[in-house]
């Protein structure tokens, strides 16, 4: 693997890790609210959260570019404040990936929270546990499988994104050039050997990651039916 490919791998892992972290913080309360709310707004929000599953990544990427670019509402505001807009930056990529991978964090968490149900939290409330206490001592431990699934899917999905990155991030080595872009470049340049190394590595790593998660979840289910 060339120096440039190693760099692309580093950017990819950094992007996935940061995105997963941001989504854990933002997605957990959102999933909790969606799992419990009876408001009509919840249905609307649920659909919005699921949008990235069906939209072409280029559509999402295009709007993110408009939004984060120098003339967009977000990018423009940053410029007016004397900061740099976010198009073609690592931060911009993180913002776009967060939106793109949102359903992969929120859906498994929402399902897990719904399965824990009101009964367990009510029992905890009668045992003198306040709302935060209940969440961390009852809901989180009982949603372990959901968290594991959500974290893995989010990370793996972010590693694999292409269209959004291409639109928002471009191809700046060390900043926005991720593995999927590097593979595309190698294939374009007919350097199939390098493309094989990266593609094969990504395929194997993704499979092993999912295998590990599903094995753990299955084992857990058999131990605690």
């Amino acid at each position: 693997m060339s120096e440039a490919d190693w760099l692309a791998l580093r950017v990819t892992l950094a992007l996935s890790a940061v995105t997963t972290g941001v989504l854990l913080v933002l997605g957990t309360p959102l999933a909790w609210w969606l799992a419990r709310s009876r408001s009509r707004l919840a249905v609307v929000l649920e659909s919005v959260v699921a949008l990235p599953l069906v939209l072409p990544p280029t559509v999402l990427g295009f709007y993110m570019l408009v939004l984060l670019g120098p003339r967009g509402p977000v990018g423009g505001t940053l410029e007016a404040l004397g900061l740099h807009h976010l198009a073609f930056t690592f931060t911009g990529l993180v913002v776009a990936s967060t939106v793109y991978s949102l359903p992969f964090m929120v859906q498994p968490l929402k399902d897990a929270f719904a399965a824990v149900g009101g009964r367990m939290t009510e029992a905890a409330a009668t045992l003198r546990a306040g709302p935060w206490d209940r969440f961390f001592t009852v809901v989180v431990p009982l949603s372990r499988r959901g968290f594991l699934t959500a974290l893995t899917l989010t990370f793996a999905h972010t590693v694999g994104e292409f269209g959004v990155v291409l639109m928002v991030g471009g191809n700046i080595p060390g900043e926005t050039r991720v593995l999927s872009i590097a593979i595309y470049d190698h294939a374009e340049a007919l350097d199939y050997a390098s493309a094989h190394v990266l593609s094969g590595g990504l395929l194997a790593a993704s499979f092993l990651l999912l295998l590990a998660v599903y094995a753990v979840n299955r084992r857990y289910r058999m131990l605690h039916p």
């Binding site: 009964r119 367990m120 009510e122 029992a123 905890a124 409330a125 009668t126 045992l127 003198r128 546990a129 306040g130 206490d133 209940r134 009852v138 431990p141 009982l142 605690h224």
Partner: peptide, 20 residues
């Protein structure tokens, strides 16, 4: 007073023990 501040004990119809 929210439930967790009331000095009560509650036994549900289903035991509702924490499985973890």
């Amino acid at each position: 007073l929210p439930t967790h501040r009331r000095p009560l004990g509650y036994v549900f119809q289903e035991a509702s023990l924490f499985p973890h």
